[in-house]
């Protein structure tokens, strides 16, 4: 155990020495990786922000369910009760055919047409207003169930702006994942190249250590510690950049945010993103350096 601590302490010391020997290169790399990693982090922040924000005055999804002619009152009430017990419905309003005719006429700017009053072609209907937090998949499921119901003649579904916006957010999410993957590959390659160049620079020293009986693990350790330090600092910078950009965006959109929700002071920052970005930074740096150093050492030996 004592030996293990000593070996690792020495490796950390070597890593620090190497870092201070090439401080400018290290600082530039940390900043570059930090900014690179902030891009997917910020995209994720925007994405999560977009998908979690619900405008207070958002238009809820609605369905007009036309009932079959001559449907018995009990059957209609049973359907109303079934719908109102669903967690995704907010309000069920019965619209009798006479009221529908009056509303239609009023909408069109016409007085109820006298002859239609006696010969009204409209069926009774239920107006189903879905919950403001409604999810597209569950709403679609309800619509499908209703379409197959014997009591229903036909229906019209008007998805909310939120549901329409959700599909846009989903598409942006895929785009973000693609961009994030590219950025992580970029980080891996940058660390790989720098670590490989470090090993080549230290060739003479590595050969000496090999001759003195150092194992590959012993030789590799300082490079991995250096990469870990690089990852930690790059992750920290990425988190700072994301937080800063979020603040800037919040101040720019302050009035719009108030319009969305009066309680919103700024776009809420998601802690999972910061943890994720920091973890990816450390992991990508470590993996990049490990691959590069192993490959170079194999070539040297």
């Amino acid at each position: 155990m004592n030996r293990w601590i000593l070996d690792h302490t020495q490796a950390i010391h070597d890593a620090w020495k190497r870092t201070s020997d090439r401080l400018t290169q290290f600082v530039v790399l940390v900043c570059l990786l930090g900014i690179l990693l902030a891009i997917p982090g910020w995209l994720a922040q925007i994405w999560l922000g977009m998908s979690s924000l619900v405008p207070e005055d958002a238009v809820q999804s609605e369905a007009i369910v036309f009932l079959k002619q001559n449907l018995e009152v009990e059957a209609r009430i049973d359907l109303e009760r079934t719908l109102s017990e669903m967690s995704d419905t907010d309000q069920i309003v019965f619209v009798p055919r006479s009221a529908a005719l009056e509303q239609l006429s009023a909408q069109d700017g016409l007085e109820p047409i006298a002859d239609l009053k006696t010969n009204n072609p409209l069926p009774d209907a239920l107006r189903v207003r879905f919950s403001v937090q409604g999810v597209e998949a569950r709403e679609n499921q309800i619509i499908e169930t209703l379409s197959g119901d014997q009591r229903v003649l036909s229906l019209r579904y008007y998805p909310s702006t939120r549901i329409q916006y959700a599909s846009l957010v989903e598409m942006l999410g895929f785009l973000g994942i693609g961009l994030s993957a590219l950025t992580v590959i970029g980080v891996l390659m940058a660390v790989f190249l720098v670590a490989a160049a470090d090993v080549v620079d230290d060739r003479r020293r590595i050969e000496l250590y090999t001759l003195l009986g150092a194992s590959r693990r012993f030789i590799r350790r300082p490079y991995l510690y250096r990469a870990t330090l690089l990852g930690v600092l790059a992750g920290l910078i990425a988190c700072l950049v994301i937080t800063f950009l979020n603040e800037v965006l919040s101040s720019v959109l302050a009035s719009n945010l108030k319009a969305l929700d009066t309680r919103l002071e700024n776009i809420p920052m998601d802690g999972r993103i910061l943890i994720g970005v920091a973890s990816i930074a450390v992991l990508a740096s470590w993996v990049g350096a490990e691959r590069a150093v192993n490959r170079r050492l194999r070539a040297l030996h």
Partner: peptide
């Protein structure tokens, strides 16, 4: 190979023409 070879080298002393010292 690997760790065994490293352990073997630890039992051998090597002197080079250029002493190969670490300046720092």
């Amino acid at each position: 190979s690997g760790e065994k070879l490293a352990r073997y080298r630890r039992r051998v002393g090597v002197v080079f023409q250029d002493p190969n010292l670490e300046d720092d």
